[in-house]
């Protein structure tokens, strides 16, 4: 539903440049996947998108408006771990977003409003296949169920953009496939903009409408931290069938050069 513009964004930590000259747009309704080896600045970029850290130069706009300087409701997130609150039941976790929005003071809803929040939560929990464990605590759920809960929880806040940070990286393959299908279904239904960070190329090419990669184009052997990563590859997968997607993936892998002197810029970041 919303478009993201990244305008000449740089991120530096002191003398270390992590990201530089990032300049691209993510269209409304796009499922954009950022791939790349660890150390290429994927996570840093996600932190910028979430406003967890200040941008050194440039700006990020959502629908033409500069993003707030702290995490906010317009950008939902599902992390790989710790995405749901351990002290709340499945239902409590899902209702939390509505409660926080409507009960400005303490974040607790009562009476009819609570009933409405509960209905909304129950609906989507049924949708993601958690209808039978409404009163369980997250620790009683499998990893896949926890991530499904995290997705439901994020969606109930109706974010403009849904961010996925290696969200399915810790799941076993069958669970992963299941949750991929669910994710695609929800994405299509809602026509929302999704930005996903992953190191799993297969995942990226099977889900995304677009796959991008960060990497370094300039390197100074004397000062390995002087230059940061920027957008190096950008593939449009819109309208591709599964077969075309796997061809795209194959050609991507053919064109992947051996990673350039990784240890030099991996220092101090992940």
């Amino acid at each position: 539903m919303s478009q993201i513009s990244i305008k000449n964004v740089w991120k530096e930590y002191g003398a270390v440049t992590v990201l530089e000259r990032l300049d691209f747009e993510i269209q409304s309704g796009e499922f954009c996947v950022l791939v790349g080896p660890s150390g290429c600045g994927k996570t840093t970029f996600l932190r910028l998108l979430l406003s967890m850290e200040p941008i050194t130069r440039g700006e990020i706009l959502i629908d033409g408006v500069k993003i707030a300087s702290e995490p906010a409701r317009d950008r939902g997130i599902v992390f790989q771990r710790y995405s749901v609150f351990p002290h709340l039941t499945v239902l409590g976790n899902a209702m939390l977003g509505v409660e926080l929005a409507e009960a400005k003071f303490g974040g607790h809803l009562f009476g009819r409003k609570r009933g409405r929040a509960r209905n909304a939560a129950t609906d989507i929990l049924g949708r993601v296949g958690l209808g039978h464990v409404l009163n369980h605590y997250p620790a009683q759920l499998s990893g896949g169920m926890q991530q499904r809960l995290a997705i439901a929880q994020a969606l109930l806040c109706q974010p403009k953009i849904l961010l996925l940070d290696e969200a399915f990286g810790a799941l076993d393959p069958p669970t992963k496939t299941q949750i991929h299908l669910l994710m695609l279904e929800l994405w299509k239904d809602r026509g929302m903009t999704v930005f996903m960070v992953t190191h799993d190329l297969d995942e990226g090419f099977s889900l995304g409408t677009r796959v991008i990669e960060f990497g370094k184009v300039r390197r100074d052997p004397q000062a390995p931290d002087a230059f940061g990563a920027t957008l190096v590859r950008d593939v449009d997968l819109r309208g591709q069938t599964d077969k075309e997607r796997s061809l795209s993936l194959a050609s991507w892998e053919r064109n992947t050069k051996s990673p350039p002197v990784v240890d030099m810029f991996q220092r101090g970041r992940s």
Partner: peptide, 20 residues
């Protein structure tokens, strides 16, 4: 992650204290 998540759900500082 939990604190960031709560903020992306729109929680204020007081709500974060009270609910999280």
């Amino acid at each position: 992650e939990l604190l960031v998540k709560a903020q992306t759900m729109g929680a204020s500082t007081f709500q974060i204290i009270a609910r999280i």
